[in-house]
Write a protein that binds this DNA or RNA. Structure first.
Length: 459
RNA sequence: GAGGUUGUAGCUCAGUUGGUUAGAGCGUCUGAUUGUGGUUCAGAAGGUCGUGGGUUCGAGACCCAUCAUCCUCCCCA
């Protein structure tokens, strides 16, 4: 059979992995400076933990794992019944008890609900692991991809929103990726829905306006009419998303629009508080990334209840590279009431694609092995092995060519692996206690004592 | 889930209205050069033309199916 890997998955070579690790390490270090602690959860969760948390579309995109032992003759009748239920679009434990995790937020909520007795709140954790979605792969979309999440559970303080915004700006600054951080509040969208057809229309309205920059105002209106809104209500939605100007201008106009709705005012005040605090700090920092109030920002995940975030890269055609928001009652889904939370997520694979396109990776991260010792014969090899061990004990990575070969071959090996130094020690050098060190880029070659070598390559 | 693109050597791709033995560049290997790579020169290896059927005297090319791929929509990171 021809070797292959599943659709939408990838192998990662050394060069790719070094770049990915650069992203991961940058994110991790920023998370830690804000006091977030690491957490890892299993690749698979119980199917029922995940189902129903991401909406109808989301359920379809969850990878379910087939149970073992379905061919057991004793269970044959039960399995046939369960499978017939699957054919009708239902999932059940008889066929699939486990599923691959779809994001990191629900596993986090499950973890908090399970361990609420042991955790001290507010609980701040970060998590960097792959997630899986049965989506059709395309540009910027994979079936296995990494997310890096930072969440705070057990606190309603808006301080967290401010700090999470700062985490976004710090990470993308360090990665040298120019971004826009869009911010909105579900309470404002809820107020809009209350004005236009009722609270239960909120998801339909938000999904429609979320498409504004993609399909334009007219098609958004068509979609809203299709959802059963009256012309008056559609006009109200239009005047809502037509609100423009600076952040403060927008908030002012919103206040005029929702003056009679406590929910809307609450959302407006939250936004104003976050923006004020963030801007006061940003002025003192090195970054000029701004929070942008974006009233068409909705985000599909239906557990968000307050602030919502989305990050877009500037200058590259790519979907959002990060997102998040506040949820009042995430663990309520698992029977634990009253734990509020807020979190953000980084889409590592999209960030990688953006950085590749912007050529934003530093050259320096591609250094692997520092030196290659040429193999000049079996006797010499043993001698060289001792020197190499000495270098390695000092933290310098080096390798010995695996067999005696023409220098051309050994040079090419060093070149292909991007090894900056070549060290030649043959019988002559062993006798003299010296080593020939050649720097490949410049081609300069110097003869030095082995002692010098052990010091010199260290820098 | 709906629609479309592309599939020829390790890689990037040519391949005429269907016509003899399917080509190029890069890469790989060998030699010129037995302790000094990148340049040059000479040579070599490497292909079930994605897979399976069909049309035809004849298919890499045309038709059908299938798989893979990339893209768009839906939705999202």
């Amino acid at each position: 059979m021809k070797p292959s890997i599943p659709q939408g998955t990838r192998d990662f070579s050394a060069a790719v992995l070094r770049k990915r690790n650069f992203i991961l390490q940058t994110i991790r270090s920023v998370f830690e400076t804000y006091g977030f602690e690491p957490l890892e959860t299993p690749a698979m969760e119980n199917t029922e933990t995940l189902m129903g948390k991401y909406g109808e579309e989301g359920d379809k995109l969850i990878f379910k794992i087939l149970n073992n032992g379905l061919n057991n003759p004793d269970k044959r009748e039960a399995v046939i019944q369960d499978f017939n239920a699957v054919l009708e679009g239902k999932t059940n434990k008889g066929i699939t008890e486990r599923a691959l995790r779809y994001d990191l937020t629900i596993p986090f909520a499950r973890y908090v609900a399970m361990n609420q007795g042991q955790l001290s709140f507010p609980f701040k954790r970060y998590q960097m692991q792959p997630v899986w979605r049965a989506d059709r792969p395309q540009r910027g979309r994979y079936r296995e991809f990494w997310q890096c999440d930072a969440d705070v559970a057990g606190s309603a303080a808006l301080l967290h929103e401010v700090e999470l915004s700062l985490i976004y700006t710090n990470v993308f600054n360090k990665l040298n990726v120019p971004v826009e951080i869009h911010i909105n509040n579900r309470k404002i969208l809820g107020a809009l829905a209350a004005v236009c057809g009722g609270e239960d229309m909120m998801m339909d309205i938000t999904i429609a306006i979320d498409k504004l920059d993609k399909i334009g105002m007219e098609k958004v209106k068509d979609e809203l009419i299709g959802k059963g809104l009256s012309m008056e209500q559609v006009d109200a939605v239009e005047s809502f998303i037509s609100i423009a100007g600076s952040n403060e201008d927008k908030l002012q106009q919103l206040e005029d629009m929702f003056s009679h709705l406590p929910l809307g005012k609450e959302g407006i005040n939250e936004l104003r508080t976050i923006l004020g605090s963030f801007n006061a700090i940003q002025g003192t920092g090195s970054s000029d990334t701004q929070l942008m109030v974006d009233l068409s920002l909705a985000r599909g995940l239906n557990y968000y209840t307050g602030t919502i975030f989305e990050v877009k890269a500037l200058g590259v055609q790519m979907g959002s590279i990060g997102g998040g928001g506040r949820y009042d009652d995430l663990t309520g889904l698992f029977g634990v009431k009253g734990i509020a939370g807020v979190g953000i997520s980084f889409g590592v694979d999209r960030i990688y694609d953006v950085m590749e396109e912007l050529n934003a990776f530093p050259e320096s991260i591609q250094k692997g092995t520092t030196a290659l010792f040429f193999n000049t014969g079996m006797d010499e090899q043993q001698h060289i092995l001792g020197i190499a061990e000495n270098l390695r004990s000092k933290g310098i990575s080096c390798e010995i060519y695996h067999e005696q070969a023409k220098f051309e071959k050994q040079f090419k090996y060093a070149e292909r692996k991007n090894i900056p130094f070549v060290v030649i020690i043959g019988s002559k050098e062993i006798e003299a206690g010296t080593a020939l060190v050649k720097e490949l880029v410049s081609g300069t070659q110097t003869e030095m004592n082995v002692d010098e070598l052990l010091k010199g390559l260290g820098k």
